[in-house]
């Protein structure tokens, strides 16, 4: 039997309760331990919403999320926070916080009122692990996009999360930083035995780094499986409306988008 770290069963979500159009429509996924699951799909296909449902930031109208076979809808907020880390795409600007204090927030689920030496030591360890110790006293807002992304991953590590959800971790990064961030995630999954679910736009990064890929369109899963199974010219044409050529590049499919598929405008 295949081990499952986290799975969702028939998740349905719509913003206006049951009446509105579903953002997620019967979404079921399975994540094996120590694996990377990539979620791809056009804008508005429900990638971010799915991540939020998994972390119970929003509550699905229907369906369940099982973490180590336990229903997370029945777990407390703090309990979920000890297991699942969430690296959000946009950071809302608050009062300025240092990198150290930002990462320290990850210890919140494990603390009662105050932090102690041991928590501090954990933060330093995580910062060293990601090679950003020298940024510790800088303000988060002063960092570049790549550095900020690393700090947020560090926070999820300080949280000691077993599953890390990342929403577009490489958007806004230059190509070198994209590789750096994805390599960090890959290494963490291999060495720290965490599992990761990554919502990502870049199909080639998804192809290169994911163990499994889920392709979504309008809240539904269109295709799921190994990158070479999901990332086909047919799927890309039907989901994105883009003509693409697929090459093989070091065992992973490499996608070269050609251009939008011309569709005849329907009448009426």
């Amino acid at each position: 039997m295949v081990m499952i770290k986290l799975e969702t069963i028939d998740i349905v979500f719509s913003y206006d309760g049951h009446s509105g159009p579903p953002i997620l429509d019967d979404v079921s996924i399975q994540l094996a331990p120590s694996r990377i699951l990539g979620i791809v799909g056009p804008n508005g296909s429900g990638k971010s919403t799915l991540l939020k449902c998994i972390d119970r930031i929003i509550k699905p109208n229907h369906g369940s999320v099982l973490l180590d076979r336990r229903e997370i809808m029945k777990m407390g907020r703090m309990e979920i926070a000890k297991k699942i880390g969430y690296v959000q795409q946009t950071i809302s600007r608050g009062f300025p916080t240092s990198v150290f204090d930002t990462v320290l927030m990850g210890r919140r689920p494990h603390l009662n009122w105050r932090s102690d030496e041991e928590d501090d030591e954990k933060i330093w360890e995580v910062l060293r692990l990601l090679d950003i110790e020298d940024l510790a006293l800088k303000y988060f807002g002063e960092l570049s996009g790549g550095q900020q992304q690393k700090v947020l991953i560090a926070r999820a590590l300080a949280q000691e999360a077993e599953v890390i959800l990342l929403d577009e971790p490489t958007s806004n990064l230059d190509i070198l930083r994209q590789f750096e961030v994805m390599d960090i995630i890959r290494d963490l999954v291999n060495k720290k035995l965490v599992s990761a679910i990554i919502a990502i736009h870049d199909l080639n990064l998804a192809s290169r780094y994911s163990d499994k890929i889920i392709m979504m369109k309008r809240g539904k899963i269109v295709s799921a499986g190994e990158p070479s199974y999901v990332l086909t010219a047919d799927n890309i044409a039907s989901v994105y409306g883009v003509e693409a050529v697929i090459r093989k590049q070091s065992e992973a499919p490499y996608i070269i988008p050609i251009g939008p598929i011309k569709t005849t405008i329907r009448k009426g």
Binding site: R56, I91, T97, R108, P109
Partner: peptide, 23 residues
Amino acid sequence: MRKAWDLNVMTVGDETAKSLGVD
């Protein structure tokens, strides 16, 4: 003062705060 930690976490936004266990 008992809520000082939660106030720190809340400065990063409600959704992130939730993911860190703070309602």
